[in-house]
Write a protein that binds this DNA or RNA. Structure first.
Ligand SMILES: [Mn+2]
Ligand SMILES: [Mn+2]
Ligand SMILES: [Mn+2]
Ligand SMILES: [Mn+2]
Lengths: 217, 217
DNA sequence: AATAATTTTTAGTTTTGTCTAAATTTATTT
DNA sequence: AAATAAATTTAGACAAAACTAAAAATTATT
């Protein structure tokens, strides 16, 4: 599998988690920052290699083989992120782009040794689950903060968006994984929230709340 | 710089260490396992980017810029090798091919952090010097075992060839960096050596002796 | 100095992954 | 049920990096 094929497989995997039907050309093109015509070309090649099922105009779905390949790439991505944060003292907003490169290093042995070296972590620095060598991963119940009712106490478990700007926003407001938050007010007009954290009240927009995974306690 | 350009620069660097004149097309092709015509094409591109000086039919030499780039690739290669051996328990014969991939990961910050994490090692698992972030590296006096006179006591400091088969040969005979060796006999006919190591006599061929760096003690 | 052998470069293809523009199919409105 | 809009695919082109075969330059040999 080439660098580019791996990126396509990974993107199709991520899109499959959100919409379980056939993944359409434009969605892939959007994620991979290419054009629909390029996607069609690549998707044909992936179908040739039996990594996806593809019928013209009907979108693609991963085959078993493709699904496993995708999970192994995600495994590598997230283990490298853990390595960078835990061992090399990178911050959680710095690691994604580096992991995008490191995930393409081809060695099962390397990644399994790294997994062991890190103590078989179950989640990456953004709260996302890390597949084990067989593709198994934990499923933690989480919901978006924007969907939680008033006066509930929640714990922050992960982020939906892991872009540097969002993560830096969270750092600035001292929100990290494990932070405990109480929802004090919901503004009907713009769905912004007033939350209580460490005895301090903070106002956050609906967009922020819609990118923060929490569990009700 | 692309993956391929980096490989060319690195090969030109390694060849420059042995022969200080212009590096010729065929030598590069041999190392990179490509054809002379492909080398000519790439060399033109590298000259365009001012990484090498090139005149038709006269071979290439690295510019200052090219030399620094090459050292940074070698730095990455060797630091990753140290990481794999020291932290992930790989053996010295397993790491080269993996490092060939890892050396292309583009991040100064990552490699400097890795350097620090490893305790700023000065040599890689094969006894080769690791350039620091400015390209500086230690210069240890070593010579090939094949060039040392009779009855001398030497310490093994490095290998010229770091192919798995050679390294596995050394493992099998329990020769490692730091091993102390005394040369007992040199066969005039084939230049094979009888050496004394840990009280045991071993016969080694001239080819083996010609790939082992030692210092006379 | 002329010829032969070797090395290097050029010319023309190929493969991979991308693009634009045009054609085709599917989905949505009227 | 047409007509229109949107999504998708095809056709043709391009850049990067490789190749083969032929031409040109350099080096070695007579
Ligand atoms: Mn990531
Ligand atoms: Mn992550
Ligand atoms: Mn190596
Ligand atoms: Mn090495």
């Amino acid at each position: 599998m080439t660098y580019s094929e791996e990126n396509y497989i990974k993107v199709i995997y991520h899109l499959s988690l959100v919409s379980p039907k056939g993944i359409n050309t434009n969605a892939i093109a959007g994620m991979i920052e290419s054009k629909a015509s390029s996607v069609t070309d690549m998707v044909k090649k992936l179908a040739e290699k039996e990594l996806v099922d593809y019928q013209k105009y009907q979108g693609v779905t991963l085959t078993q083989k493709g699904l496993h390949a995708a999970k192994m790439i995600v495994r590598k991505h997230r283990l490298w992120e853990v390595f960078l944060v835990e061992k090399l003292d990178f911050t959680w907003d710095e690691v994604h782009d580096l992991a995008e490169e490191l995930e393409h290093i081809k060695s099962e042995k390397l990644i399994n040794r790294l997994d062991e070296f890190l103590g078989f972590p179950k989640e990456d620095p953004h709260g996302d689950p890390i597949p084990d060598r067989y593709g198994q991963m934990i499923k933690v119940e989480k919901q978006l903060l924007s969907e939680v009712g008033l006066n509930k106490k929640v714990m922050c478990l992960g982020v939906k968006d892991s872009s540097p700007s969002f993560l830096q926003y969270l750092d600035k407001h001292q929100i990290s994984l494990g932070s405990e938050i109480e929802i004090i007010n919901k503004e009907a007009f713009d769905m912004s929230l007033t939350i209580l954290m460490n005895g301090k009240e903070i106002l956050i927009s609906n967009k922020i709340a819609g990118n923060l995974f929490v569990k009700v306690m």
